[in-house]
Amino acid sequence: MAVQTLFEVHTLKGGSWAVDSTYPDRDIAIETAKSLHGEKQFEAVKVIKDTYDSATGSGKEIVVFDTTSKVRNKAPAPAPEPAATPAAAAALKQGTPPRGRAKAKKPSGDYAMAVKVTLLLVLILAGGLGTIYLLHYAGGNFQKLF
């Protein structure tokens, strides 16, 4: 087989790098990285060209876009990522299409939000029912006065 190339978009958040998405096209990967960097939710973004030679089983990674220069000035750089991720090598071998932007959700954050929303709805419901009851009770007493 021939040499296969894949462009990985990596994001830095909380001091750790994560693969956000992969693309077969360099320009699309760089545009995605610029868009993610513009959202200001990540400390840095970089695009890595991952070349895999199936004949020799070796891979090579080259950084083609990087926004970590500002991060390096603020804090020490995090440890570099391993040379080749198994998922990237498997995707290159199988020729799978690029996967979309994947975000890891924190389940604890989802549960906390659900509890807050539930408590707020119960509070609104109790307040509304209490107001209706008080208006009804006050109206009944008001009629007794006349």
Rank of each mutant, 00 (worst) to 15 (best):
Lys144Phe: 00
Pro107Phe: 13
Ala75Asp: 11
Asp25Pro: 00
Asn73Val: 15
His37Ala: 11
Gly59Phe: 04
Ser54Phe: 08
Lys116Arg: 08
Lys46Gln: 12
Val3Pro: 04
Lys60Arg: 10
His10Lys: 10
Lys144Val: 06
Lys93Phe: 05
Ala87Ser: 09
Gly128Gln: 06
Leu135Lys: 15
Glu61Ser: 15
Glu61Lys: 13
Thr56Cys: 14
Ser108Phe: 06
Tyr111Glu: 09
Arg99Ile: 12
Gly130Asn: 01
Met1Leu: 08
Ile48Ala: 10
Glu39Ser: 01
Tyr52Asp: 04
Ala90Asn: 06
Thr32Phe: 00
Pro107Ser: 14
Ile132Asn: 04
Asp110Phe: 12
Phe42Gly: 02
Arg101Glu: 12
Ile30Thr: 01
His10Phe: 07
Glu39Ala: 06
Asp66Met: 02
His136Arg: 13
Ser35Asn: 10
Lys40Ile: 03
Pro78Arg: 00
Lys49Asp: 02
Gly95His: 02
Thr11Tyr: 04
Val3Gln: 01
Thr32Ile: 05
Ala83Ile: 13
Pro76Ser: 13
Ala55Thr: 07
Ser35Gln: 12
Gly38Gln: 12
Pro98Ala: 04
Lys144Glu: 12
Pro24His: 14
Thr51Trp: 09
Lys70Thr: 12
Ala114Val: 05
Ala77Gln: 12
Leu119Cys: 01
Phe142Glu: 14
Val9Asn: 03
Pro107Asn: 12
Asn141His: 06
Leu134His: 08
Ala91Cys: 15
Tyr111Pro: 02
Val63Ile: 15
Gly95Asn: 02
Ala83Gly: 12
Lys49Gln: 07
Ile124Cys: 01
